[in-house]
Amino acid sequence: MTTTRTRLGGTHLLDIESLSPEEIALILETADAMKEIGTRPIKKVPALRGTTVVNLFFEPSTRTRTSFEIAEKRLSADTLSIAAATSSVAKGETLVDTARNLEAMAPDVIVIRHPSSGACHLLAQVCQAHVINAGDGMHEHPTQALLDAYTIREHKGGLAGLKVAIIGDLLHSRVLRSNLALLTTLGAEVWVAGPATLIPRGLDRYGARSTTSVDEAVEGADVVMLLRIQLERMRGLFIPSLREYFELFGMTRERLALAQPEALVMHPGPLNRGVEIASDVADGPQSVILEQVTNGVAVRMAVLYLLAGGVGAD
């Protein structure tokens, strides 16, 4: 789909819900161009030169933070990362005060990951800078869903009519919520599966089907996406043990065989091998897990560029 747009409509990227289908298409197309940059010997373009980007991470992160940092540097932005544990947040400074203090140094973009749902919305309320949500509590992780869609599109051409199965701790997953919003907008048929204790209500809003049978979800699927199970879920009495979870819901070669022969195996990472996914599936021929990581940089470059790039060109 071609478009003459060169910017995203809003000031921020907080959630998939507020993106129009045109904006989604624009991001994915722009990511194509950005991906190419990652293959050059000099992986840099001046698109965000002179732009200050602050990565404000209140939760530990390998993938997402590194991905954003590399994306920012490839666009020539001035980038710095703040980890909450080593900042004044540990002294009790509120999010709003942290934001205001940063704003006083005029960053152009703030990328925020926070354990509270809606934290990025609060930040957007008090900040002039562009705010990009790198994961807010259990709510959304929009760039993850975008890179997931990009990966599927690369292999399958498009998403319309594909059956996508998402399996794991659905209730607490921001990756699920973002993916649900994005995949259904792009016309995929989404099935979610997990233990009854971890299935959210209100999925009919998205037109997704839910089941406690992994086999039913995976049957004939074009994409199988696994979500991480956290140890804390046992404390909240959601599942009896990780061992039982793997027995009933883990993605093994046998279960994967129920899907399409060319079905993609995806996972946002980090993996719990032997819990939501068997090692040989994670490392197997159908796994595109590491491609997701590569595509993450391209997609994040696209988002940064479309929000904050082309300054002075408007």
Binding site: S117, H139, R177, P200, R201, G202
Partner: peptide, 10 residues
């Protein structure tokens, strides 16, 4: 506990 909390991740 309901559709709104689910949607907002609360």
């Amino acid at each position: 506990e309901g559709a709104m909390a689910d949607r907002l991740g609360l």
